[in-house]
Structures are given as C-alpha cells and as structure tokens.
Amino acid sequence: MSAQAFRSIKDIPLEEYFTPGHRACQGCGETIAVRHILKAAGPDVIVVNATGCLEVISSPYPYTAWAVPWYHVAFENAAAVASGIEAALKVLTRKNLISGKKIHVVCFAGDGGTADIGFQALSGALERGHDFLYVCLDNEAYMNTGIQRSSSTPYGAWTTTSPPGKVKPAGQMTYKKDLPSIFAAHGIPYVATATVAYPLDLINKAKKGLEVEGPAYLHVYTPCSPGWRIPSEKVVQVSRLGVQTGMFLIYEVENGQLRLTVKPSRRKPVTEYLKMQGRFRHLSDEDVERIQRLVDERCAKFGLPPLEAST
C-alpha cells in the first residue's frame, strides 16, 4: 500500500467525479470534501448516500452531480446497503461475472445519518467487517432541514432546536459525541479524522481508507456557512482555526495505533474559533472558559502542547 499517494496539490487528479452544477449553498464545506474523496477513489467506485444535505443538493431531478454510480438510501441504512453492495460484488467476482478489478464502495452520510439515525447500521457493518469506506461529513447539526441539533452538535452552539434562553443560556447544553473514538473501539483497521482546510491530508486518508482490507471510517469536519453563521468565504479559514485551536483533532488510528497527522505547533485560544461564528455569539465568559478547559484536557490526552507554552 502506498503510504503517501498524493505528495502535493499537483498530484491530485483534475477529473471531477462530483461535477459542478450541484446546488449547494455558496461556500459549502461538504462539497470540497466530497470532490477530493471521489478523486482519491477514481472512477471505479459505487457511492451510497444517506439522506442529508449532500443528497438534496446533488440530485434535484432530472439532474445529478454524480459522475459515478450513486445510490440514495434512507437516513438509517446507508451502511447496511453498502454492506449488501460489497457482498454482491464479492459474489459477482467469484462467479466471474465482472472483471477482477477492485471496485470501491464509499458511503457518505452526515452527522445525523451517522451519530443518530444510522448509528446501529454502521456499527453492525463495521462489526461484520465489510470492505468499504464510510465517510461522515460532520457539519454538527441537521443543516438540510433547517439547523436542528444532532448528537454531534458541540456544547454552546445555537441551533433552531437549542436556542439560548433564560433556562439554557448556552444553547446546546450537552457535549459532542466522540464518533471516531466509538468506531475505533470497534477494532476496525482504519479510522481517521480530517477537515477541508487540509486537502492533501484528507485525500491521502481517503485513499488509505479505500485501500485497506476491511471497513474504514473517515470523519470529516465540514463547516457549514448558513448553519454556523459564518460568511461563505471564511469556511476554509474556520476549518483551519478549528485545527489550530484544538477543537478538531486530526489523527488516524491504523490497526490500533493512533497518530496525529496535523499537529499545530502553536495552539491558539478557542475564542478565536468561537468568535468567528454567529452560532457561538451568545456564549458567556464562563462558557468559553469551560470549552477552553475541555479542549485543553482533550489536547493533553492527545499529546498536544498546552496553551500557555504555545502563546
């Protein structure tokens, strides 16, 4: 397996398998990620797509933005359908009905389709060991239906179903579900997190996840311009700040070995990340301190430098 398939931006293929003309919002973070993951997969791929933003924006009938075979399935069963496709491909290859060329199966789902509704199907598929790549495009709420909270929404975020008020001043009062850790605990060969600001890291991880034998899980943090209340041109910048402040930890777990792939040398305070986004506008100083403390604790566990030393 080639460890670093794409060494520079110039190595990324020019072909678009997720074609222009899709109807995503201006500055959609999700589509940047999808473009690059499909470039890593190439033309021999079958895509399974759970309901969510991605499905809605890419397939208003009679148009499709997909230049590869694509299935749209319900919220809860993307991983189950991918398992079936993978099993069918295995049988067809065994019976010599298709050429022996490896056909990748990639699953795209949002954080709602992964953390909430599609959780059990994915857990089952990972446990059975089907050979596919599951990509969770985490924009931290149900953006497609109008910004409702999901279990992946971070503490303190405003959404339409977690509005800050007198009783719950922070908005979302619960903490983000740590999905990559949950799926790493399934003991699958490859789990990774990535974000759109580091496209080479993202595309290499997608490639690795596709080439690995058995299931792979890729968690991509994709900022959402309308949902996070950020101007469309700041989407990539927010994603980069998420990494630099330690809000997003970019790592991979390969056969149980954890390795940070993007390691910020100087960690910025979380306020820089929070201040850019309208969904954190209402936060009090105590709330910001609490988020900073949680991020510090988590970063210490991953071996990132403490904030004091880095300023």
Binding site: T19, R23, V68
Partner: peptide, 10 residues
C-alpha cells in the same frame, strides 16, 4: 438518471 454528471448543464 442515465446521464452521469448531468448537473453540468445547470
């Protein structure tokens, strides 16, 4: 949809 990537027309 039988035309892959037909969104290009849009």
């Amino acid at each position: 949809i039988f035309v892959p990537g037909s969104a290009k027309e849009y």
